[in-house]
Design a protein around this nucleic acid. Structure first.
Lengths: 205, 205
DNA sequence: AAACATATGTATCGATCGGTATAAATATGC
DNA sequence: GCATATTTATACCGATCGATACATATGTTT
């Protein structure tokens, strides 16, 4: 049987994406219900909102999930063993930076900026998936350096934690710089610089 | 003549510092008046608050100024021509990172995290001094690289903008990483790595 | 002492916060 | 047609938002 009852007047998935843009731009606590209601589906009522999503927090969770399954996948290369580790790192840096500078959505990365999305202690649990994602990406960079060492591409004494943190923190900083208007072309030359960290630890120079 | 009227029951400068800690931790929009009133001077009333500071926005401005004149000065070396440019860069990275990981105040840098302090367009002007400070620090890194080139320490073809952005974005990212609990010892090894970018462009290897 | 200046406590302002109760509107299943 | 299921619109909830009126307390100046 098909759906019973009166059909919803707005597209639910599209609504989640519009909410994601708002949360991405302003964070969880700063984004108000009235803002969400105004933006979603060209304007919906409070009962429609709660019938569809349950609560502001529940919608945020869906918006985060939506982000993690789409935009956040620019870091997937870090876990792809079919890609050479150096290339995986560079690809991730360039893909993420490109995404963060794209037009059509807020600048920066929702995961990185999520640090200040719900700064109040009482709301900290809401942004947990974002913190998990940050930890995962950081671990991904470290893992690639470790792969480089294991493959004999990087010197034995290379500090994977140190180099991984350098890549990771740089990428987190891109979110702030991108909001400040730094252009993708500058980031790209900067990434070319940053990759010299890898080459400096390389065995084949 | 001394001050007339009933004397204030709390220390105004200390109040600004307490407010600075709150704004640093949570941002401008997320920090509420009631939170500020509760924390300041062990609890003050609304009229006392407004008599002393004028408004939430005015207090934020003072808190930002207080931060810029104290904690933010960890980047001063970038503009000190008596310090060799490479040392100025490394000193700034280590000093700022150390400060951001210190206990006794919120983790991270108020200037960096200020990007999400007042994300609503209507409040953007409030965080302008923080944006100016970020631009200044970025320019300071670029300037040090340019000094390195001018002094013949770095190769002629070195891209100052690219390397400066690498240092700058890394340092911005430290604010987010520090909030995630990354330890100062890790950052320090990471900075040692990062400085190899300078050495890779150096003439005397 | 009186006059004045400033800070404080209580009580409250209109606006907005996240969230709901109620009932009318619109679909499907029989 | 009629019962059922779901969404809609209107109106409203108590709590909190940033900010203020008013009277009282506490100091200096004269």
């Amino acid at each position: 049987m098909a759906q019973m009852g009166r059909p919803r007047a707005f597209d639910r998935q599209q609504a989640i994406e519009q909410a994601m843009h708002l949360f991405w731009e302003q964070g969880y606590e700063t984004t108000s219900l009235s803002q969400l209601k105004t933006q979603i589906g060209g304007g919906i009522s409070a009962p429609s909102f709660y019938a569809a999503f349950g609560s502001k927090e529940a919608l945020f969770k869906e918006a985060v999930q939506c982000y993690l399954e789409s935009y956040a996948r620019v870091t997937d290369a870090l876990w792809d063993d079919e890609i050479a580790p150096r290339e995986a790192v560079e690809l991730t840096l360039r893909r993420s930076t490109k995404m963060q500078c794209e037009s059509g959505h807020p600048k920066g990365c929702m995961v990185a900026l999520g640090t200040m999305s719900a700064p109040k202690h009482e709301h900290a649990h809401v942004t947990k998936p974002l913190a998990v994602s940050r930890a995962r990406t950081h671990a991904g960079f470290v893992r690639c350096v470790e792969r480089g060492i294991a493959m004999g591409e990087l010197a034995e004494g290379t500090d994977a934690q140190a180099m991984g943190t350098a890549f990771s923190s740089f990428l987190l900083g891109v979110s702030i710089s991108a909001r400040d208007g730094v252009k993708i072309s500058v980031f790209n030359t900067s990434i070319t610089e940053l990759m010299k960290l890898w080459d400096a630890a390389s065995n084949e120079r």
